[in-house]
Simulated scan of single mutants.
Amino acid sequence: MYIVYEVRTQEHKTVAHPEVTCPLCQQQGGVHIAIRQRYIWWFGPMCPTPKFGIAWCERCDQKIPNVKWSKPLEQAYRNDKSSVKTPLRLWRGMLVIGGLFATLSVVAMVKTKMRAVDTSAQTEYFAHPQVGDIYYAHTGGELKVEGNSASSVNQVYALFKVVKVDGDSVFVVQGNGSRVSTAGNIINEYTSGFWDGIEKETTAYSATPVIISHQSMTQYRFFTPLPRLKDATPGGITQIKRPGK
């Protein structure tokens, strides 16, 4: 991560000191002192450094190095510096950054609370299925074994609507909008807009119900059709939506 910023210099004031003798040319009437201050510019001015002075002489047209400053020049600099206060505007960027971080913190808190509410609702839906609930799920498919590796193929991703609940059995019917994941075309359900696309395509549901185990739903969030086939692998429920909620 890179942070790009500028170091700028604020010149507060320049004062002429005709009473001070230039330590370079030994003449009076040409010494000037400028009081300056550096600060960082990033979303505005911030982090001003201590003030400093630059002295030069118009008589000899030279900058006077600090190591050459005489005691009268040092005293004139201290007097000039003491009369200059750091303006509050040089801290303005800190207010912007502080406001930005405060806004991000509030947004993060709101999102965290929304996720907590959503998680609580999903837990309730898993624990107490109701007729009309819509499951965004895949059926698990079939187990395919090749050498020392195994994978699931022919998984059907679709919306399933609850039409009946009877003990441990939850009866659902499959929507007509679906995706099939095969060995040659593996589906990633977390792709942006994946479930939105299936939801938009689903205009009707099958009349033939599929029975799934409520116990496997609550314990593992599995979508396990009953009776379970020999080579079937457990499906999964990504989310549940309850109409009107």
Rank of each mutant, 00 (worst) to 15 (best):
K68S: 13
R221V: 04
T233W: 12
Q239W: 14
G177R: 05
S83C: 08
S152V: 07
E142A: 12
S82L: 07
F194Q: 06
L95Q: 01
Q219W: 06
T233P: 08
T182S: 15
L73I: 08
T86E: 12
G30L: 10
R78W: 05
Y2Q: 11
F126S: 02
R228K: 09
D196C: 02
R115G: 05
I97E: 04
Y220V: 04
F43A: 00
V31T: 07
Q155K: 14
W42R: 00
G98L: 00
K113E: 10
D231S: 08
G175P: 08
D166Q: 02
F194W: 13
L159Y: 14
S105H: 01
Y5R: 00
G177M: 10
M1Y: 06
T191S: 01
I240T: 09
G244Y: 12
Y220P: 03
K245R: 15
V4K: 09
R221W: 12
T14E: 14
R38T: 12
V15Q: 05
G167V: 00
I3N: 03
E11S: 13
G30P: 10
H12Q: 07
S181E: 14
G93T: 00
T14Q: 12
L226C: 02
P72L: 10
R92I: 13
I134C: 13
Q219C: 01
A207W: 02
M217L: 03
V96Q: 04
L24E: 11
N154F: 11
G197P: 12
K85Q: 15
Q122K: 00
A76L: 02
S181K: 08
K85S: 14
N185G: 08
I237M: 06
S169K: 05
V7L: 03
A183H: 15
T21K: 06
S151C: 10
H12G: 03
P18S: 10
V106A: 01
A108R: 02
R115W: 09
P48K: 02
N176P: 09
V15N: 02
Q122E: 04
A183P: 09
V153S: 03
R59I: 14
V153W: 03
Q62L: 13
Y205T: 10
G132K: 11
I240D: 03
S70W: 08
D80I: 06
Y125R: 06
N66V: 06
T238E: 12
G29E: 09
V162E: 13
Y2P: 06
W42N: 00
Y136A: 07
M114W: 05
S181I: 07
G147S: 09
I64Q: 11
Q26G: 04
V162F: 14
G141F: 14
T9F: 11
S216N: 05
